[in-house]
């Protein structure tokens, strides 16, 4: 009863604001239906990945499974969480780049168990409880416009980045972009993991705040603003997006910071309310076997899971699935973190 009331309230508010779809209160960005050649069943997917990026995978899956109609809906990771956690929205598969939110969904009992030959072949660190399955490994990188760094050495570590920004306030003022952790689930994940990994995170935030940093919801916007010259650099951008977007554009460069590179996994879960968990399972099998379709990794820019230990001395710092991810989702912890972050970035 209470849930229904809240839901109708949400729907009402969003309708008043002229936002959202008719059926759900959460914010839908894009939606596209893919009809199978001889469809008998349907699979609805809620995802944080843009249609432009993900379409080749959907089409390849549908070629292999022509009996399945696919309804692909995209939204931000926080909205995706809200849709499943609060509104019990009807989807068969949830794909998100926010590993922490996916883990919380599974931990709090919103995910179904699934196991198959394909998922069992995944390395242990790429799945959790047979409910959360990782299928990509994507680094967080910095994207710079080479023109803005003319005459300066390109920073290789966060420490160097802080120094460069401090020494050239006139050049970088208003031209540094990063995620708004209040609205972007992925941005929050990257920021919290950064705060765990390095002491320089808070100083960097402070410096970016002093330079009047521009805040974004998504990687795409940041990259195009760097390309247009509005930004000199974008910090903590998804490497996979960056690589596919700067292709063929001069003057843009991806800079992995050498002190460490956070690596995120894109994960999939089957929510408890799924109508067609079998088809969702087949889609998961297809996703975790992305390594067998190098042409798809090529066209989407999504690197598949590679089951091999990272080389010694590597700067790659993969984010581990597990209950540790719940810590930064704690309401108090989040409140404190966001408060500190906001007071640093908005000066």
């Amino acid at each position: 009863m209470r849930n229904a009331n809240i839901r109708s309230l949400f729907v009402g508010i969003l309708l008043l604001l002229g936002l959202g779809s008719i059926s759900y209160a959460f914010e839908i960005e894009e939606q596209k239906r893919y009809s199978g050649a001889n469809a008998q069943q349907s699979l609805s997917i809620l995802s944080t990945a843009d249609i432009a990026v993900f379409e080749p995978i959907i089409l390849a899956f549908q070629r292999a499974n022509p009996t399945i109609n696919i309804n692909y809906v995209t939204s931000g990771s926080t909205e995706v969480m809200k849709a499943i956690y609060k509104e019990q929205a009807q989807f068969d598969l949830v794909i998100s780049s926010a590993m922490d939110l996916q883990t919380k969904l599974a931990n709090d009992g919103f995910a179904l168990d699934y196991s198959s030959e394909a998922t069992n072949a995944l390395p242990d660190w790429a799945r959790w409880r047979n409910q959360v399955f990782g299928f990509t490994q994507e680094p967080a990188v910095m994207v710079i416009s080479e023109a803005s760094f003319e005459g300066l050495e390109v920073p290789r570590t966060r420490q160097e980045l802080i120094e460069t920004l401090r020494e050239n306030p006139e050049r970088f003022s208003g031209r540094v972009g990063t995620y708004d952790v209040r609205t972007s689930g992925l941005g929050y994940l990257f920021a919290t993991q950064d705060s765990r990994n390095t002491e320089s995170f808070w100083r960097l935030t402070e410096v970016m705040g002093r330079l009047d940093a521009q805040l974004y919801c998504c990687s795409g916007g940041m990259i195009s603003d760097v390309a247009s010259g509005k930004l000199a650099l974008a910090y903590n951008v998804l490497g996979s997006y960056a690589a596919s977007q700067i292709e063929g554009r001069d003057g843009l460069r991806i800079v992995p910071l050498d002190d460490f590179v956070g690596v995120m996994m894109r994960t999939a879960i089957i929510p408890v309310g799924a109508n067609n968990p079998d088809a969702a399972g087949r889609f998961i099998d297809f996703l975790v076997r992305l390594g067998q379709h190098p042409e798809l990794s090529e066209s989407t820019g999504l690197p598949s899971i590679v089951d091999q230990p990272l080389p010694a001395g590597t700067v790659m710092r993969p984010i581990r699935l597990g209950p540790g991810l719940l810590v930064f989702l704690d309401q108090l912890r989040r409140e404190t973190f966001v408060r500190s972050w906001a007071s640093s970035i908005e000066q």
Binding site: G322, P323, T336
Partner: peptide, 8 residues
């Protein structure tokens, strides 16, 4: 301030 290690 929930320590990361507490749950991990």
């Amino acid at each position: 301030e929930l320590p990361y290690s507490a749950l991990s």
